[in-house]
Design a protein around this nucleic acid. Structure first.
Length: 503
RNA sequence: GCGCCCGUCGACUAGCGGUUAGGUCACGGCCCUUUCAAGGCCGUAACACGGGUUCGACCCCCGUCGGGCGCGCCA
């Protein structure tokens, strides 16, 4: 039997770090075993679901490279393409499946395994607070379970609209095998008669999930362990529907949670929590995926970096951990740097272009060949220093622009000192003589000059750097001079000499 | 309140009865070096606590404490 897994987000916000990790593990598992990865939109929250969220979530998944085999079809911006649906088991939006849930709820009603409940939200709230005050579990007390037909009619005619509640067995236990937790068991008596269908006829999460997992022939439920205690309810529904065999074969894998640095649930106050923010902040999807994979999963040798398909080859549900993991932005940042250093310069340049454009350093994200070659050379100079794509503009502005700003402190310290201008003028004269304007000869020239004047090499290098870049820190001096070219280097040196010798 | 899950360096983790408790991030030092990085080497740093079981426990059992999750006409 082929493996079928699903990622089933509710579209009430962006793709969250936690959701992304769940999606990733499902995807990795599916890819590993050649199974299908299904995207199902659980939009039964009538007030909070939005189409924008669907777009944001699908955009996030696509950016991470987590492509689904079945589910809604979307374009690059995450717009839903109504006419194209991937897969045969749809629709993949739960709100388009209302009739299906209704049918199964009717069956349970008919079989006496569910019943209509006419309690109002106010009554339920009162029931709950009363229970809490008495230090009892805040459960529904089952008062509508044994309503007579006449009583039901009476309530209906009084205008009450019922919900459908599940008749939870009052004894026995429900147990299941979880790939990461092992043998898990819950006493049925602890559960109450939960809602299957809301007054509106829309199913609750618990109900919809069971129906869909069955009809979509899901084989493995891989999700966050916040769903662990929901699992017995879902198994009970399966059994009531006569799907005992299906649920017996259904494998569960409840993944540990991802927490914020303070050990509490990851939320906005912990900084960026949506995948899209990370894209905007200059992270590479590969780095994100690699980092996320290590949150709750590891190899026997604690491998950190996985190249290409390696992650897929090595991933397994069995090696997922049980304990919650704290999201560490610092390690993610390190990993992003690792990936940036690893990808090729042309690739890195392409990915940097949108950020350069945004900073106004290039007019477009597609450049004429000559300019692109130049930008690539510049990117190559700073590659090892880039941690985020958003670093690129700041690192390269003095190379891409001729009227870059001079750092006052560096100018004061290195150029506005006795002899600096004279030295620069000397060096400029010699540079003019160079025919082969590449790093090695320029360096040779500077070293020779230092020896000749009996000064330290640094006394030549530093003024040269500040004069041509406006700053004290930057790429390897002679390499960037080479990239800049003789003409520009001399122009910059002369400009500085003119400006400073006037004063 | 009830129930479930979890508990190894600050963080992610390896470990699966006998290890100098390993790796990675971060941190500190040294080296390399025109700067900043990158890289190399070294170092600081952990089995939550208390009982058992055992010749021997990070590992198995019980309890305590701590954290997380669930108990919605939210998902």
């Amino acid at each position: 039997m082929t493996v079928r897994v699903r990622f089933a987000p509710s579209p009430t916000g962006f793709l969250h770090i936690g959701g992304a990790r769940t999606a990733l593990f499902n995807w990795l598992f599916a890819r590993r075993v050649g199974g299908a990865f299904i995207l199902r939109i659980e939009d039964t929250d009538e007030v909070r679901s939005t189409p924008e969220s669907v777009s944001a979530i699908t955009r996030g998944l696509k950016w991470l490279g987590l492509h689904w085999d079945e589910g809604p079809a979307v374009d690059e911006q995450g717009n839903i393409l109504e006419s194209k649906v991937l897969g045969e088991k749809g629709p993949y939006f739960q709100m388009e499946r209302i009739h299906i849930y209704k049918k199964h709820a009717d069956q349970l009603l008919q079989d006496g395994k569910a019943y209509p409940c006419y309690c109002s939200p106010e009554e339920l709230e009162a029931m709950r607070t009363r229970a809490m005050l008495a230090k009892r579990p805040p459960k529904y007390d089952g008062r509508c379970r044994e309503l007579t037909d006449s009583k039901r009619k009476e309530l209906e005619s009084a205008g009450r609209k019922p919900v459908v509640r599940f008749k939870t067995p009052m004894s026995g236990e429900t147990r299941f095998q979880d790939i990461v937790r092992g043998d898990v068991r819950f006493e049925n008596a602890l559960l109450d008669d939960f809602v299957l269908l809301k007054t509106s006829g829309v199913p609750t999460y618990q109900f919809a999930v069971v129906i869909d997992d069955y009809l979509m022939e899901i084989t493995h439920v891989v999700r966050g362990d916040d769903h662990l205690s929901n699992t017995p309810r879902q198994i009970l529904i399966d059994e009531a529907l006569g799907w005992g065999e299906f649920v017996k074969n259904l494998k569960f894998a409840h993944l540990s949670m991802i927490l914020g640095p303070d050990g509490t649930r990851l939320s906005k106050r912990h900084g960026a929590t949506s995948v899209e923010e990370y894209r905007k902040n200059g992270y590479l999807p590969e780095a994100m995926v690699n980092y996320l994979s290590l949150l709750g999963w590891s190899t026997e040798d604690s491998q950190q970096i996985f190249a290409g398909e390696e992650l897929i080859q090595k991933f397994s549900l069995e090696r997922c951990g049980k304990s919650a993991a704290i999201f560490d932005p610092q390690k993610l940042l390190w990993m992003n740097g690792e990936y940036i250093r690893k990808i090729g310069v042309p690739d890195l340049t392409q990915r940097s272009l949108p950020f350069l454009k945004e900073a106004g350093l290039t007019p477009e994200t597609s450049l004429p060949k000559e300019r692109l070659d130049f930008v690539q050379s510049c990117v190559g100079l700073e590659q090892e220093k880039i941690k985020l794509l958003t670093d690129v503009p700041n690192l390269l502005d003095f190379l891409l622009l001729d009227d870059f700003k001079m750092d006052e402190k560096s100018v004061d310290k290195v150029l506005k000192v006795p002899g600096a201008i004279g030295l620069l003028m000397d060096v400029a004269k010699r540079i003019e003589q160079i025919t082969d304007f590449t790093a090695a000869p320029i360096e040779q020239l500077c070293r020779a000059y230092a020896t000749e004047k009996n000064i330290k090499t640094g006394q030549v290098f530093h003024p040269l750097r500040v004069a041509t870049s406006g700053r004290a820190q930057g790429p390897s001096l002679f390499h960037y001079l080479e990239v800049l070219g003789k003409e520009r280097v001399l122009a910059r040196m002369k400009k500085v000499c003119n400006q400073l010798s006037v004063h």
